[in-house]
Simulated scan of single mutants.
Amino acid sequence: MAAKSEAFLRGVQLRHLRCLVAVAQERHLARAAERLALSQPAVSKTLAELEALAGARLVERGSAGRRGIQGFTVAGEQLLAHALRVLEALDASAQALMPASGLRLQRLRIGALPSVAPSLLPGALARLRERLPLVQVLVQTGANALLLDALRAGELDLVAGRMSDPQLMAGLTFELLYTEPLVLVARAGHPLAGAAPSAQEVLGYPLVIYGEGTIPRHHTESFLSGLGLRLPAHGTQTLDLSVARALLLRSDAVWFTPIGAALDDLASGQLVRLAVDTAGTEEPVGLLLRSDAEPSPARQALIALLRESGADQSRVARR
């Protein structure tokens, strides 16, 4: 075992680690090659060299061909965590060598679920801008699994999202901010507004729902299943809140959504919450971080502000 470790230490190079990180971030060998300005065969060769040095398979190739990556093995996840730390340390060293008078760009890369971002992020980001006016903020929204992949690969600094399957939580931590229920929302003046409709009556109207594989979609199906109902196949599926909102305002569609996604429109009165009991659909929302990531002042400041926003959301959700 000692000889194997020594061989790895003698043979591993930065190009191997950069290759591993690029493959983790792109999940595709050809796209990783583009990121590294290499040919795809060169990336495949570098990855094979690293696997030979590690004495273990690091990635699981996709069934549709060797260019796609299904995921990382346990050994691959472990080595990826160390590779990220090495590259982050090199980046910090480069920053430290900059002239003292030079401005160092602080950057925060934030991932958030579409249903969480509009209610949780704006207030926290506005207060962060007051405290750290020069920080660069990048916000990415998407499905939970994609955000967690990006977080684990070092492409994001934190994610405002939900817990996932244990295998997707490897190397990540979760801090609960609040829980929010699934609600049924429609435009003001909708035929069901002001009444107490049954879920069966709601299904008689066009529906707007989240896409397959998302947690809100799972809760929508579970909620209806508990009432002996099934979700019709002809609903409009979207993660885009602007599309969902516009469709509701222009039609009699009903939206099954976590309440946070509709808070502003509910407060303004443009949308209304239908009086359908959805108790038991509450889902935790929290902060996800890489457990081995080095803390930064900007990230810690944002985390504190998101905790404050989460407390506000918790009070709203209990009303």
Rank of each mutant, 00 (worst) to 15 (best):
R131V: 11
Q25W: 05
A244H: 01
M98E: 14
V285D: 03
S251H: 03
S309E: 14
L36P: 01
L147F: 03
Q237D: 11
I69P: 06
G211F: 07
R187S: 04
S101C: 04
A153I: 00
L17W: 01
V12Q: 04
R315Q: 13
R319L: 13
D264C: 09
R61N: 04
L227I: 06
R66H: 12
G226E: 04
L146G: 15
R67S: 14
L263T: 14
N144K: 01
L38C: 04
S296I: 00
E212C: 11
R250K: 13
I303R: 13
E60S: 11
Q40G: 12
L84I: 10
D265P: 08
V139H: 07
A48M: 11
E88P: 02
G226L: 02
P41V: 05
M163W: 14
Y210V: 07
L203V: 05
L151G: 00
L50W: 09
R131N: 06
A153P: 03
S115N: 11
P232K: 05
L227G: 10
F174K: 06
E283P: 04
E77D: 10
A126I: 08
L241F: 10
L80Y: 03
T46Y: 12
L288A: 00
S309N: 08
V59G: 02
A94C: 09
A42D: 10
F256V: 04
A83P: 04
R104H: 12
E283M: 13
R67D: 14
R107H: 13
G310C: 04
I259V: 14
A83W: 04
L138I: 12
L80I: 01
L271D: 02
A54F: 01
L132N: 02
A311I: 04
G171H: 07
I259P: 07
R299W: 02
Q78C: 03
L288Q: 09
G189S: 07
V59R: 03
V74M: 12
T238C: 02
K4H: 14
P295W: 03
A195E: 13
A2Q: 15
G123C: 00
Q140N: 11
G142Y: 01
S93K: 15
R61S: 05
Q300C: 10
E212T: 13
A186E: 10
